[in-house]
């Protein structure tokens, strides 16, 4: 990345980061109506009230995703090469959500229109080959298309899922695992000064994902250490491969938390359940992102940090708007927006 590109991207990120919500700006949003919220954040007006709740909720979600991907488009515009690939790799999460929806829908023999209504409309820089998959008429054709296309590595799981009538867990875990592996690989390809800052930022993200998955697989799903480890993505920061091997062998939440290195150990000490762990980890990741945005010398790291924080803001906005669509009381919505990423992570993990 040339110095001029670095300077341009830095300026862009600084200009765009003024849109991020400061802590004091969240409270007043609770008193705004749906239309006012949409106008305030430059979203398309929410659908009319006579439309079904699901359609309205979906429209809000789509509008928020579009905003985030538009930010991504602006950020990748001046950059080329490995830096561009890294940011694009981050943005592919929505394409993978579409892929999961498609596979799940086709395997369940849902109507094509029904499946399509659950897909995000993605711009060209963020979509994969899901259009071709969408045209598949039947599961076997879908599986053949998967085997021929860029998702060949997950095709075998998909076929096994279909032929042996298994739960979709392994397939979806493989998709998520692949997403984070590609993200990590793209980050590790960057040499020079970018790598240290990016390693820390992506590392914090992967630490969070790896620990949550580990706890969920071991404590909630009851998987064996071997199975749990297989689905994890080692982080380049704290929870690297050997540490994950050691943690996977431990039984119970307390013993895992007690074996965590600093700063995760003290941060998560005393957590009683997965929700608390998730909330604290979210906060930890956001702090790392804020610090990267404010202090990093790497324009790409700052751009990625901005995107993570912006995503968090938009999830918060989604919680607010969803709460209003459901007609929930203000107090309940206020509790939900305290932990936007918890909602967001849940949405991603659907």
């Amino acid at each position: 990345m040339s110095t001029a590109e670095q300077a341009y991207l830095n300026t862009r990120v600084s200009a765009m980061s003024t849109r991020l919500l400061a802590p004091g700006q969240v409270e007043p949003l609770l008193d705004l109506s749906l239309g006012e919220l949409a106008a305030r954040f430059g979203l398309a007006p929410p659908p009319e009230e006579r439309r079904p709740l699901r359609t309205r909720s979906r429209a809000v979600e789509q509008a928020l995703v579009s905003v985030l991907l538009e930010d991504l488009r602006i950020l990748i515009r001046p950059i080329r090469g490995a830096e561009r690939r890294l940011l694009l790799a981050w943005g592919r999460k929505f394409a993978l959500l579409n892929l999961k929806t498609l596979i799940r829908g086709k395997l369940a023999s849902l109507d094509a229109a029904e499946i399509r209504s659950n897909l995000f409309e993605l711009p060209s820089h963020a979509h994969l080959a899901e259009e071709a998959l969408d045209r598949a008429e039947g599961v076997l054709e879908l599986l053949r298309l998967l085997e021929r296309g860029p998702h060949a590595s997950i095709a075998r799981q998909a076929r096994e899922l279909y032929e042996r009538r298994r739960e979709p867990f392994a397939l979806e875990a493989a998709i998520d695992q692949r997403y984070y592996s590609v993200l990590l690989r793209e980050a590790m390809r960057l040499r020079d000064a970018n790598q240290a800052d990016l390693r820390r930022l992506i590392g914090s993200l992967l630490d969070q994902v790896a620990l949550l998955w580990l706890l969920r697989f071991r404590c909630s799903f009851g998987l064996s250490p071997s199975e749990a480890f297989y689905f994890l993505v080692p982080s380049p920061h704290l929870l690297h491969r050997d540490r994950l091997l050691a943690l996977a062998e431990l039984e119970g939440l307390e013993s895992v938390l007690a074996a965590l290195p600093e700063p995760l150990g003290p941060l998560l000490a005393g957590s009683e359940n997965l929700l608390q762990v998730q909330q604290r980890l979210n906060q930890y990741s956001l702090d790392v992102a804020r610090s990267s945005l404010a202090l990093s010398q790497s324009a790409v790291a700052r751009a990625l940090a901005y995107l993570l924080l912006r995503e968090n803001d938009l999830f918060l906005l989604f919680s607010l708007m969803q709460g209003q669509l459901l007609g929930l009381p203000r107090d309940l919505i206020a509790v939900a927006v305290e932990q936007p990423l918890a909602v967001g992570a849940a949405a991603i993990a659907r």
């Binding site: 590595s153 064996s224 250490p225 071997s226 480890f229 297989y230 491969r241 994950l244 091997l245 062998e249």
Partner: peptide, 15 residues
Amino acid sequence: PRENVSRIEGALRLA
């Protein structure tokens, strides 16, 4: 698949 070897190796080692 070659890309899975490292993870399988770790997972098997646990067993």
